[in-house]
Amino acid sequence: MTETRTPARTDAPVTPAPGPDAPVYDCRTVFAEELAALAREDERVVVVCNDSVGSSNLVGFREEFPDRLINVGIAEQNMVGVGAGLANAGLVPFVSAAGPFLTGRALEQIKADCAYSGFRVILCGQSPGMAYGELGPTHHSVEDLSWLRAVAGLTVVVPADRAQTRAALRWAYAHEGPSYLRIPRFKVPDVTPPDAPFEHGRAQVLREGDDVTLVAIGTLVSRALTAAERLAAEGVSARVLNVPFVDPLDTAEIQRAAEETQGLVVAEEATLSGGLGAAVASLTGRHRPVPLRLLGVTGFAPTGSPEGLLEHFGLTADGVHAAARDVLGLPSSTS
């Protein structure tokens, strides 16, 4: 850490890490609340689901708007096609289903019916990542970011907490094209600063730093903040970027981080093949090579509790902390 670099900005934000007793929340609750609020404001808002009314937390929506929820049964390809048809008819469909089935079974319809056609279909992947835990590899949704990043014209969004989940729904409702939102089931603390903007394709700097940058999404954002505080106590200045828009990526903020810090750690609850880490590696490799450490899922995630699976793959504050020290060439720490 003797290299001369541009110092961190004097107005650098410092978002505190959630403490061990900080409350955590299931973001499906605010998803349902905000969706109902949008439906009250705009009679064009409808929901299409695949026999997942309960798991999508849509019971209240169905009771309030019985004629505006379409349950197609376990038929995900049809579900996405119906959503595209409703969009073509001038409605605003939110298509909600468990992430692995929405993105795996209906990928062709997402590509052809939604993205290629340019329809405003809001695809809501429920319980993404490894949130289904004990249901095993068939229910883990860790490939979704890789599959959908390859689809042209589709915006991919991963909110980190309640505030970003609300903002993502509002943003997708106003967006003219198709989008995919990961709706967290795994309970997370609040990490978004009050009045923080939610802008298309923009990352959020939660903490400035000039030694190493921690790039995180979803469940990993709070863990990155905790790792940054540990690093600060060890004399390491860590920047923390929350990247809700996986595609389009905030290339300017990532390149700034590559220019101003010695290395990047990217952490995501997704496979390393083609997800956020791959996007960052491709960008920096072409424009600003920098030491990288990528944290994510390799191979098929096994069966286990969601928390245990995150620990299995090192997707913890300890894992991010260790990766940051490693990318800087510092010895491992047991503190």
Score class of each variant (00 low, 15 high):
residue 6 T to Q: 14
residue 24 V to H: 08
residue 57 N to V: 11
residue 56 S to P: 00
residue 48 V to H: 03
residue 46 V to E: 03
residue 18 P to F: 08
residue 60 G to R: 05
residue 23 P to M: 13
residue 45 V to N: 06
residue 49 C to G: 05
residue 44 R to A: 04
residue 57 N to C: 11
residue 19 G to P: 14
residue 46 V to P: 02
residue 42 D to K: 04
residue 23 P to V: 12
residue 30 V to S: 02
residue 25 Y to P: 02
residue 27 C to Y: 04
residue 45 V to D: 01
residue 5 R to L: 15
residue 15 T to W: 01
residue 53 V to D: 02
residue 59 V to C: 00
residue 18 P to W: 09
residue 53 V to F: 01
residue 13 P to N: 10
residue 48 V to K: 03
residue 59 V to R: 14
residue 55 S to C: 04
residue 34 E to W: 02
residue 43 E to C: 02
residue 49 C to S: 13
residue 41 E to M: 02
residue 37 A to Q: 13
residue 33 E to T: 06
residue 33 E to L: 03
residue 32 A to G: 08
residue 15 T to Q: 15
residue 40 R to G: 02
residue 17 A to M: 11
residue 42 D to F: 06
residue 29 T to F: 07
residue 46 V to S: 02
residue 60 G to N: 12
residue 39 A to D: 05
residue 18 P to Y: 11
residue 33 E to V: 04
residue 29 T to Y: 06
residue 20 P to A: 11
residue 32 A to S: 15
residue 10 T to P: 03
residue 54 G to I: 00
residue 14 V to G: 00
residue 41 E to G: 13
residue 50 N to V: 06
residue 16 P to E: 04
residue 29 T to M: 09
residue 24 V to Y: 08
residue 11 D to A: 09
residue 17 A to L: 12
residue 32 A to R: 05
residue 21 D to G: 09
residue 18 P to N: 07
residue 25 Y to I: 01
residue 11 D to G: 14
residue 56 S to Q: 08
residue 45 V to K: 07
residue 52 S to W: 03
residue 34 E to P: 04
residue 56 S to A: 15
residue 34 E to H: 04
residue 56 S to Y: 00
residue 31 F to S: 03
residue 41 E to N: 00
residue 27 C to L: 08
residue 14 V to M: 01
residue 12 A to N: 10
residue 42 D to I: 06
residue 8 A to L: 12
residue 8 A to E: 09
residue 22 A to C: 05
residue 54 G to M: 00
residue 57 N to E: 08
residue 48 V to E: 04
residue 6 T to P: 05
residue 56 S to T: 11
residue 48 V to T: 08
residue 33 E to N: 06
residue 10 T to H: 11
residue 12 A to T: 14
residue 19 G to R: 15
residue 16 P to N: 09
residue 59 V to T: 13
residue 41 E to V: 01
residue 46 V to Y: 01
residue 43 E to A: 15
residue 19 G to W: 14
residue 20 P to D: 14
residue 52 S to T: 13
residue 59 V to Q: 11
residue 11 D to I: 06
residue 17 A to Q: 11
residue 60 G to I: 07
residue 29 T to W: 09
residue 34 E to L: 03
residue 19 G to E: 13
residue 18 P to G: 10
residue 42 D to A: 04
residue 35 L to A: 08
residue 10 T to D: 14
residue 6 T to E: 15
residue 12 A to Q: 14
residue 53 V to S: 00
residue 13 P to R: 11
residue 35 L to T: 07
residue 13 P to G: 10
residue 7 P to A: 07
residue 24 V to D: 10
residue 12 A to I: 12
residue 53 V to L: 05
residue 57 N to L: 07
residue 16 P to M: 07
residue 28 R to S: 02
residue 11 D to T: 13
residue 31 F to H: 07
residue 13 P to L: 08
residue 22 A to T: 13
residue 53 V to I: 15
residue 34 E to S: 07
residue 6 T to H: 13
residue 57 N to R: 15
residue 17 A to P: 09
residue 5 R to G: 10
residue 5 R to M: 11
residue 15 T to C: 07
residue 12 A to M: 12
residue 36 A to V: 12
residue 54 G to H: 06
residue 44 R to M: 00
residue 21 D to K: 14
residue 23 P to E: 15
residue 21 D to F: 12
residue 38 L to P: 02
residue 39 A to T: 03
residue 24 V to N: 07
residue 7 P to N: 03
residue 14 V to K: 06
residue 17 A to D: 12
residue 15 T to H: 05
residue 15 T to A: 09
residue 30 V to N: 02
residue 48 V to S: 04
